[in-house]
């Protein structure tokens, strides 16, 4: 069971969180022309990376905040976590 540092609450066990997918995906802006390919990429196409991956988790049984977690998908090592509005350098 992972041990995740919620930037709002501190170290908490994985069972307080729910997984939310790739955090690097940006939703196309509303009311903008979007090509089929762009939309397809946004909705469906994901890279299944081995290694460092930026992903979304929600602290659903805690502060309910969505956070970003930088995790190695092969080793489960967590490098850094960010608040929803924090830029990931």
């Amino acid at each position: 069971m992972l041990y995740i540092n919620c930037p709002h609450c501190g170290m908490r066990s994985q069972n307080e969180f729910s997984y939310g997918g790739d955090a690097s995906v940006k939703r196309p802006e509303l009311n903008k022309e979007v090509s089929d390919q762009e939309w397809d990429n946004f909705v469906y196409n994901r890279k299944s990376l081995r290694g460092k991956h930026l992903e979304l988790w929600q602290h659903i049984s805690g502060c309910r905040q969505w956070i970003k977690v930088e995790r190695d998908t092969a080793t489960h090592e967590i490098f850094r976590t960010f608040k929803a509005d924090e830029e990931v350098a």
Binding site: S18, G20, R27, L56, Q58, I60, R64, Q65, W66, A84, D85
Partner: peptide, 13 residues
């Protein structure tokens, strides 16, 4: 609720 929170926190802060 999670759906609304997702958009409010991440997409349209």
């Amino acid at each position: 609720l999670s759906h609304l929170e997702y958009y409010l926190q991440l997409v349209w802060p």
